[in-house]
């Protein structure tokens, strides 16, 4: 069957279209995966417009959408730098600042933004000062949201160990008509029992309950597990000290403690592994790498184990 001239043109045009489209995609793929070509040309590492006022004007009033874009960019930036183990988070604070100045009511940017900024690497950017500024700006523009007072108090508690300011933040949050049931208790406990396990447990419980974000919840769970281990190790070491006081020597094994009536059964960590009694009377966990953030039960000189890298921050709210 003979093809008409128009048919031939259509065929050739369709072939060229498909070929060039495939070629363009393939070329872009090569560019994306060639570190030599991409060096110094990553758009993610550039902040083309750093003034929120200019951006606000350029947006012609559609600031909400622009703020959402900048927030997404901040999340992606943090995720990529965190995943690449870069330790360089210099754009994170400006991105969050622009986001919140474009939309001062964008609560996730304060809550999660502070969570990205404050913790030391590798968990975060190690910029607690920037996190504090961000949350303060959030409180100033959203004085009716108890979560921001909670974030402020939490930041003072965990990063600055400033229990008086933490108590003040919890107290201000507790006064709001809609607030967490834990806020008044936290405000009260912070003054007298700031360093105690129950206070820390309540803080992490509130964190867990006040977010739907999977990464934050997982982090809170891991801290709660670590707190349990720290508390149990502390209690066991107190028991060992009492045994020594009573018998004049250290126990040789957990069975000695059980026989003396100090404990019932073999105590185990939340992962189900029995605690080890060391010859010097210290208590250690079986596998320190399994339980993140613990400060007790570690071999001498060991640093608190940190969780492994995650691919990208992701939400489970849907």
């Amino acid at each position: 069957m003979k093809m008409s001239a128009a048919g031939r043109v259509n065929l050739v045009a369709a072939a060229v279209l498909l070929f060039s489209m495939a070629g363009a995609v393939a070329t872009l793929y090569v560019i994306d995966n060639d570190d030599q070509v991409r060096r110094g040309a990553v758009a993610q590492d550039a902040l083309y417009v750093s003034s929120s006022t200019t951006l606000r004007r350029m947006s012609l009033g559609y600031t909400g959408l622009l703020a959402d874009i900048y927030w997404t960019r901040a999340v992606q930036y943090f995720g990529q730098q965190h995943h690449a183990d870069s330790g360089d988070f210099r754009l994170l604070a400006p991105l969050l600042e622009i986001t919140t100045e474009l939309d001062p009511k964008l609560l996730p940017a304060y809550q999660f933004g502070a969570n990205f900024l404050a913790p030391k690497p590798p968990g975060g950017a190690g910029l607690p000062g920037a996190a504090l500024e961000l949350i303060k700006y959030g409180v100033e523009h959203n004085p009716d949201h108890w979560q921001l007072y909670y974030n402020l108090g939490f930041l003072y508690y965990t990063e600055f160990k400033d229990y008086a300011k933490a108590a003040d933040a919890f107290r201000r949050g507790a006064k709001l008509p809609v607030t967490s049931e834990f806020m008044p208790i936290l405000a009260a406990q912070m003054a007298q029992h700031a360093g105690e396990f129950d206070t820390a447990r309540m803080l992490w419980m509130t964190t867990y309950q006040s977010t739907k974000e999977a990464r934050i919840r997982q982090n809170a769970v891991e801290h709660l597990v670590a707190l349990q281990v720290d508390e149990e190790v502390t209690q066991l070491e107190q028991v060992v000290a009492k045994y020594r006081e009573l018998k004049g020597r250290l126990p040789g094994s957990m069975s000695d403690l059980e026989r003396a009536g100090f404990i019932h059964g073999t105590p185990a960590d939340p992962k189900g592994h029995a605690y080890k009694l060391m010859p010097d009377g210290r208590i250690e966990v079986q596998d320190p790498k399994e339980i993140y953030f613990i400060t007790k039960g570690l071999p001498p000189g060991a640093l608190p184990p940190q969780p492994p890298r995650e691919p990208q921050p992701k939400t489970d709210s849907k």
Binding site: G64, D68, T72, V75, L106, P108, E213, T315, S317
Partner: peptide, 17 residues
């Protein structure tokens, strides 16, 4: 897509966008 690439702004993006 927004649920995959951002955090906690699904509703905001739908309304804003």
């Amino acid at each position: 897509i927004v649920g995959e690439i951002s955090i906690d702004i699904e509703r905001l993006v739908v309304v804003n966008l």
